[in-house]
């Protein structure tokens, strides 16, 4: 995430309320960090012993109690890739329309916004049932990575669109006016000015969306399925890491150790994906604004 301009405050007028506010804000940060460090260390403590190169590459054996999670990592990444490939263009397109080309009292824009707000609140299990009925059965994709990815794309759209839209709204109007004054078409001002400037919002949306989709269980169990074999195409059924964790912790006696290890791997993958996204966006932002 981009660092904001940080003002320097002169503590000249530090009154009682200010002291209280400072204490409260620090307290909040400490509580939140505390809870999360507790949770993370619990996962690391129980999971780190299981993780090895063999665990990362081997196929699961004995219902996941033994063996590794190689095929499951591949399936997870493929599902994520399908999800991003579909949700990104759709999401960015919609956000651009809502933020740049639609006035706030436009009926179409308002309808789309409201339906997205509702979509954001649809329970993941309902997405799962819908994905099963629509993608798997109606469109005939069966239990497949494709069905899973598309279901997740539907699910992550609201988050992606909302924060991208916020990103566009944050771009000062001078940019648009300046571009218009220079006679740039709206298309090129969008590409050369607005998109780079809105990148931080887009990035937040992507991180949140990917976080939600990589962590999703209920929507995937009915769409991408339960098969823990190495997938050979997008039409194959593939078990995602979160389903694997759910199955190991809730359905397989003695699966806890590998469930912890899988959770750890999931978090590390997420960390890597987030870092890459943030690095790319920084570079992109730099290059566009300089050129």
């Amino acid at each position: 995430m981009a660092e904001a301009a940080r003002p320097t405050f002169r503590p000249a007028h530090t009154g009682f309320t200010d002291t209280i506010a400072t204490v409260v804000v620090w307290l909040i940060a400490i509580i939140v960090t505390g809870v999360f460090v507790w949770l993370l260390s619990d996962i690391i403590w129980h999971g780190i012993g299981q993780v090895s190169w063999r665990f990362l590459t081997e196929a699961p054996r004995n219902a996941g109690r033994a063996g590794g999670i190689g095929p499951i990592i591949v399936s997870t990444l493929l599902i994520l890739a399908v999800c991003i490939a579909v949700a990104m263009p759709l999401g960015v397109g919609t956000a651009v329309l809502l933020a740049e080309f639609t006035s706030s009292d436009n009926l179409f824009g308002r309808l789309v916004r409201r339906s997205l707000d509702v979509l954001a609140g649809v329970p993941s299990i309902v997405f799962g049932l819908f994905g099963n009925a629509f993608f798997c059965v109606y469109l005939g994709m069966g239990f497949s990575i494709l069905s899973g990815g598309l279901t997740l794309a539907c699910m992550t759209l609201p988050i992606l669109i909302r924060s991208t839209e916020e990103g566009f709204r944050a771009v000062p109007d001078e940019y648009r006016l300046g571009a218009a004054a220079l006679g740039m078409s709206r298309t090129s001002s969008l590409i050369h000015l607005l998109l780079p400037a809105a990148a931080p919002g887009l990035l937040v949306g992507m991180v949140l969306g990917m976080g939600r989709s990589i962590a999703e269980t209920a929507a995937l169990i009915f769409t991408s399925g339960y098969v823990d074999r190495m997938p050979q195409s997008l039409h194959d059924s593939g078990r995602s890491l979160s389903i694997h964790i759910f199955d190991l912790s809730m359905n397989v006696a003695g699966g806890d150790a590998n469930a912890y290890a899988s959770a750890l791997v999931l978090i590390v993958i997420l960390l890597i994906v987030n870092s890459v996204a943030s690095w790319t966006s920084d570079r992109w932002l730099h290059k566009r604004i300089i050129s």
């Binding site: 999360f36 990917m210 976080g211 964790i245 959770a263 987030n274």
Partner: peptide
């Protein structure tokens, strides 16, 4: 910076893990 990274991570922890914990 550290705090932001932490929060970003938390957004991606599977609900199963929270439930398990």
């Amino acid at each position: 910076k550290f705090y932001r990274r932490l929060i970003e991570l938390l957004a991606g922890i599977p609900s199963v893990v929270y439930g398990f914990w």
